[in-house]
Design a protein around this nucleic acid. Structure first.
Length: 584
RNA sequence: GCGCCCGUAGCUCAGCUGGAUAGAGCGUCGGACUUCGAAUCCGCAGGUCACAGGUUCGAAUCCUGUCGGGCGUACCA
């Protein structure tokens, strides 16, 4: 497909250069780079279009006339593929050749179809999730996780050497709050004794603390006092901290497993929070930063039109920004990356702008390769999620509800026997619905999470894609049962329906879509693509018999097409965290 | 106040580096299961692309301004 495009760009470019000569114009009045291409809005017009409007002025002639003139200048043997319409020059590709080429490529590459070596050797570190250990994951984390995991898979598929990292926020006054409430109200209970998932168990004490603090002014200073004890290494405090952190982290990891999220390295803030201080002092020594009379250390950011920023408090202690400086430098030493992506909500845009600049001021050129993949807030139809009003959507609970609903759907359709393990299948459908819903929206934008819509399994949803895959699978299984091979030779010339060309065209586009998604860190480019692929196939499936095709040759070719659709769909779904299902 | 982001159908969202009649899903209404899975397919209706200027042969897309919404602007994280 790309090769065809390039061939035509060359041909048309040469024709235009010839036209320049014929008209006796300056050679500089046309440069091949000016040539633009697009896809005609209607397939009947062709497969590739060149607008001639930009050249009207140069040639002092109307675009349609230029188009006609260009056709005359094209090599004889290529002219039959060209038509003109308005100011456009439309090209129709040799479809049979492309069909053959595309389906072969899928057949040969299999699970690797769509991958590339474009990013080969590029080391990308991607940080995401970064939970607190005082409460379970909620809907906001789910968007973060989906984005991070998916982006990592896409980058990796595009050839990069990817390292996924998590930074657990396991220290600070908010952690002490749940510990304090546990001491005061826990009576030695454990997750086991109370029958709760361990991170929820911890989270309940955090809620309990806030209730208590609302009535009792002594709660706040007690929490601060506990933090002080923790920082001084008080054994009892540390022991409780370890216990409750383990509960929280174990529970959080259960949710990761459930959502198919994983990490290559995990950093703990309790181990990294002191790292930045030395770097900041180095910066002070080198003159990158300055010190106030009260001993606080500052960065002057007027060179990027920002104010100034504290890097060390007057008592010498670190801040959030300080830690991030240290963590970044440590990570770059641990695993020298070419690029680093931080998947963090858009509220922190300013923070990262400052962080990257400060790292640059410290003399690290790689600061230019740091990227904040910022994503918008997840809101509810009623408005923002508010923990105080209890409207925060809990991740586990949401997954349970989705799973229950999917299981109900399976039972209602009497598919229990066909799917085998109802629970496991329902869980995968739930995950498909959730991830697709979260990745559908452009990362940058805020989104509204409508629980009812996310629970829907029809229309533009994850389960729709899964269903399409399941139907193809079921049909192909039937084909095999009837003795047909899925990797048999076929004659591409048998696939001459417009609907078949439409499918092939989309399949052929897949690799470039993956590459674009990788380049822009944007999984939503794939969700839209996969939906259209599935929709196109659903129409085909409805209208065109495959197993009952008119001839053996036709059947073989159509089976090959279905195999390629399924492969592309499966590879794409993997990238957006939607489990592929043989049966549902 | 200043900075960043967003504003497309009743609702939720697409719309690639500007290009041919602005697209989906949901919802409404109406069709299609003796046929490879109806979690499907097909059709009808629904738009001043927030508003006003500008650049361009051509603007939802780029620039400026206005209005509306979100976020940020801590010796919090």
């Amino acid at each position: 497909m790309t090769r065809n495009k390039e061939l035509w760009i060359e041909l048309v470019g040469a024709a235009l250069e010839q036209l320049v000569k014929d008209k006796g114009l300056d050679a500089g009045s046309f440069a091949p780079e000016q040539l633009q291409t697009e896809v005609p809005p209607n397939p009947e017009l062709g497969d590739l279009a060149f607008p001639m409007f930009p050249f009207a002025k140069v040639f002092r002639s109307a675009p349609p006339a230029i188009a006609e003139a260009v056709v005359e200048l094209l090599p004889e043997e290529h002219r039959s593929a060209v038509t003109t319409a308005g100011g456009y020059l439309n090209i129709r590709f040799n479809r049979a050749g492309l069909v053959q080429e595309t389906l072969k490529a899928v057949q040969e590459q299999g699970e690797a179809y769509g991958s590339s070596k474009a990013g080969a050797g590029v080391r990308v570190m991607i940080e995401f999730s970064c939970p607190n250990t005082n409460k379970p994951l909620h809907l906001g984390h789910l968007r973060n996780d989906a984005l991070g995991e998916s982006t990592a898979r896409i980058l990796s598929f595009a050839g990069a050497d990817v390292r996924k990292v998590n930074l657990i926020n396991d220290r600070g006054v908010h952690i002490c709050k749940s510990m304090l409430a546990y001491l005061k109200f826990g009576n030695g209970a454990t997750p086991e004794s109370s029958g709760l998932k361990s991170d929820h168990f911890v989270g309940d004490y955090y809620v309990r603390y806030n209730q208590w603090a609302a009535e009792d002014p002594s709660a706040e200073p007690a929490a601060k006092e506990m933090l002080r004890a923790w920082e001084q290494g008080d054994p009892e405090t540390l022991e409780l901290w370890k216990l409750m952190n383990k509960w929280a982290i174990d529970g959080i990891w259960e949710t990761y497993r459930r959502t198919h999220v994983s990490f290559d390295a995990v950093y703990y803030e309790s181990e990294t929070y002191l790292l930045g201080k030395a770097e900041v002092l180095k910066g002070l020594a080198s003159g990158a930063f300055y010190q106030d009379p009260d001993n606080s250390v500052w960065a002057d950011l007027s060179d990027i039109d920002l104010d100034k920023k504290v890097l060390l408090r007057s008592d010498g202690t670190s801040l959030y920004l300080t830690q991030d400086i240290g963590t970044a430098i440590t990570r770059h030493n641990d695993w020298p990356f070419d690029r680093m992506v931080y998947v963090v909500a858009s509220e922190q845009i300013y923070h990262f702008k400052v962080l990257f600049h400060v790292i640059k001021k410290l003399g690290h050129d790689w600061a230019a390769n740091l990227h904040h993949l910022s994503y918008g807030m997840v809101n509810l139809p009623e408005g923002k999620m508010k923990s105080r009003e209890g409207t925060v959507v809990d991740a586990d609970k949401l997954l349970d509800e989705l799973t229950e609903l999917a299981a109900g759907e399976i039972r209602e359709k009497a598919r229990e026997d066909a799917v085998g393990d109802v629970r496991a299948t329902a869980e995968k459908i739930a995950l498909g619905a959730l991830h697709y819903y979260l990745l559908q929206t452009t990362p940058n934008k805020d989104m509204i999470f409508n629980p009812e819509a996310s629970l829907a399994f029809s229309g533009n949803t994850g389960p729709y894609l899964q269903y399409t895959g399941a139907r193809i699978s079921s049909m192909l299984a039937k084909a095999q049962a009837q003795g047909y091979r899925l990797d048999a030779e076929f004659d591409a010339g048998e696939l001459n329906l417009d609907s078949e060309w439409d499918l092939v065209r989309r399949i052929a586009e897949f690799p470039s879509l993956v590459a674009a998604a990788a380049e822009n860190y944007n999984p939503s480019a794939l969700t839209g693509y996969l939906y259209e692929l599935a929709k196109s196939f659903s129409g085909y499936y409805h209208d065109v018999p495959v197993l009952q095709a008119g001839t053996e040759e036709q059947r073989a070719a159509r089976i090959a097409l279905c195999v390629a659709v399924r492969r592309t769909l499966a590879n794409g779904l993997q990238l957006i965290g939607v489990p592929f299902l043989e049966s549902m």
